[in-house]
Amino acid sequence: MAGTARPRRRLCNCYLMPTQCLPATGAPTSAMSHRSFIWICLLPLVLVTVAFFVLPMAQLVAVGADGPRGAGAYLAILTEPRYRATLINTVLLATATTIATLMIATIAGLFLQRHRFPGRAVLIAMLTFPLAFPGVVVGFLIILLAGRQGLIGAITLALAGEKIVFAYSIFGLFLGYLYFSIPRVILTIMAAVQKLDRGLEEAARSLGASPWAVQRDVVLPALVPAFVASGAIAFATAMGAFGTAFTLATNIDVLPMLIYTEFTLAANFAISAALSIGLGVIAWAILALARSMTGGTVAAAG
């Protein structure tokens, strides 16, 4: 009962093939293999990156170790009291910025994602449009808000008879970094809230949890990856931001300003190179750590 091959019908080929067969190859000249094509695609990027990023960074590392202190310049950031104080100052400022931004953005982001009301789209647009303002512009906006001719000064003068001006202090810089970080952190948190499974919250409520308990036990823990990712960005950005500090001020002791003055005013190339490397390593390490914790891609913003 087995082994009988079934008959094979073959219809007239002429119906399907009115013309002669086509040539086997279109362009026999293009003998380039796919492998080499991929390399040709990658080559310009590799060249540009090596010439204008890898080599210069290597040079920066070399210059840092080439001053009167030798490789000890890299330790100066920790051993020299003036540099160490600046480093601590910068880290504290960046930490404060990160915590404040996360708190503000979480409250606003949760609210905006969980409620639908007229004007919501406008509000979101207002909160996110400063996304790509450069640091210099942010600095100027802080001056308009809290500078010598600023709004807060005018209001306090009218109300209390005393003009409050803090734009040029470290608190002004803090406000500037806050201004810079809020839009992008709100965006990240809103995206994370949108992805939350509402079923989890409903389950918690069905088990008797109060609204506060639901936030504390279900919502906030689920947002931790977003906090880590966006917090790392805010921190790294605040560590390295130069434009805002440059506009505001003259007398704020933060790492980027220190590097700038060491380089341009003191012409202390080795120390400024070593400090930049230190700053770069800290910023990169924070982002890499956050990335390994969240598994996502995290990058600082200019």
Binding site: F53, L60, V63, M239, F263, A273, G280, L287, G302
Partner: peptide
């Protein structure tokens, strides 16, 4: 690795990259 390297300028402050370029070129 290549992707990681070209992404580094997002993490490293612009000031450091500028110094590196100045010191090299």
């Amino acid at each position: 690795v290549i992707e990681e390297i070209i992404t580094l300028p997002l993490a490293i402050p612009g000031l450091a990259i500028a110094l590196a370029l100045l010191l090299t070129y």
